[in-house]
Design a protein around this nucleic acid. Structure first.
Lengths: 191, 191
DNA sequence: GAGGCATGCGTACAAACGTACACAACCCCG
DNA sequence: CGGGGTTGTGTACGTTTGTACGCATGCCTC
């Protein structure tokens, strides 16, 4: 060892820092480019810590994405809980799509990477199912189950498209769309 | 060479077969697990063919996903062109979500992998932008631009959620949702 | 204060990767 | 029918990966 910081006995914060570093690496290099060495470097821990704290690469990824999904779900639920009525909830949803959580490329990339893993690996699908259920439960504070479903899906797709799209979306159109989906405004055939 | 089949001069079908095999490998092992060796094995061509036909791994992936996106867009456009009116178009959209193109896990996985790449790499984002534009143009045969946008996004999200979800969605609810989004039915506050 | 044990790390290793490159097979032109 | 250029392939190389494992470090007990 080149000295510097001495290893402290039983440092539980170490494990957390590795998980956070893992999410950072995934966000910038993708799951494909997320090697244990890069995560170790990002967390500023020696390579040996990887095998010590995690059984393997997959366990590390599972824990990292688990934390990510739980945080995202909790944030969404908080927003829904804060909304006093349906209209406020819909506005919060639009705000979410247009600027908030996923505005940073980081969270968008992370969610895509998670979906990609979930599409093939049941262990990760458990995480996305949990996330989806929590999202719908949060919407369930204001809407009936069927509406929760379509609203949740719309948020999903709109977020993705907004992030990929070059020309910016119109928030008014989005608000109008979620109102129609929620059935809180009568829709007219547009010109 | 162990003999068997002799190398035929200028076999253009060879390149196509590699691209198809690449999509197969991506669908089963993900982009991360898509190595040139595995693609070569799947296409039943020698490893050397990889470097001969493609400048590198990334070019191979770009061409493969390009083909995938174009095919998917073309299929969607065909369905929209076949629809005689708005109602038929909406029904076609619902059919698409509920069973058709993405019913096979394969296409879903492929589109996720593509989105994941696009979220980080501009070269792949060009592919998704093109796909999105074609989808909207196809919808544009029946709907105004703002509606195309929200419908397209809804299809996106609903497809993803339906594929990940354990409990099956209700096609009637989905049809109702797209009708509301398209403004072709007056929505009532549901019970 | 010395032995022992839990904690954490440096290093080594086999496997797998992308890619380069020399060379074989084949056809065309004279 | 033979040289030359095009087309396609076998193989070897340097790098990077995940993971295992022996060893250093520091606390606790007696």
């Amino acid at each position: 060892m080149t000295a510097g910081t001495r290893p402290r006995r039983h440092d539980p914060e170490r494990r957390d820092r590795i998980i956070d570093a893992c999410l950072d690496v995934v966000a910038t290099r993708g799951v494909e480019g997320t090697t244990q060495r890069r995560v170790a470097a990002a967390a500023d821990v020696p390579l040996g810590s990887m095998t010590y704290h995690f059984a393997g690469r997959e366990e590390l990824l599972r824990e990292a994405f688990g934390r990510f999904a739980r945080q995202a779900a909790a944030q969404f639920d908080r927003r829904m809980a804060e909304a006093p009525d349906r209209e406020a909830a819909l506005r919060a949803v639009v705000r979410l799509i247009m600027q908030d959580v996923f505005a940073t490329q980081r969270d968008l990339v992370l969610s895509h990477e998670l979906y990609t893993l979930a599409a093939r690996d049941p262990a990760f699908r458990d995480l996305t199912n949990d996330w989806m259920r929590r999202s719908r439960d949060a919407l369930g504070r204001h809407f009936d189950p069927a509406t929760c479903r379509v609203l949740d899906a719309f948020v999903e797709g709109m977020t993705i498209h907004r992030a990929l799209d070059t020309e910016p979306a119109d928030g008014v159109d989005v608000l109008d769309a979620v109102r129609r989906l929620a059935g809180t405004v009568s829709s007219r055939p547009s010109a």
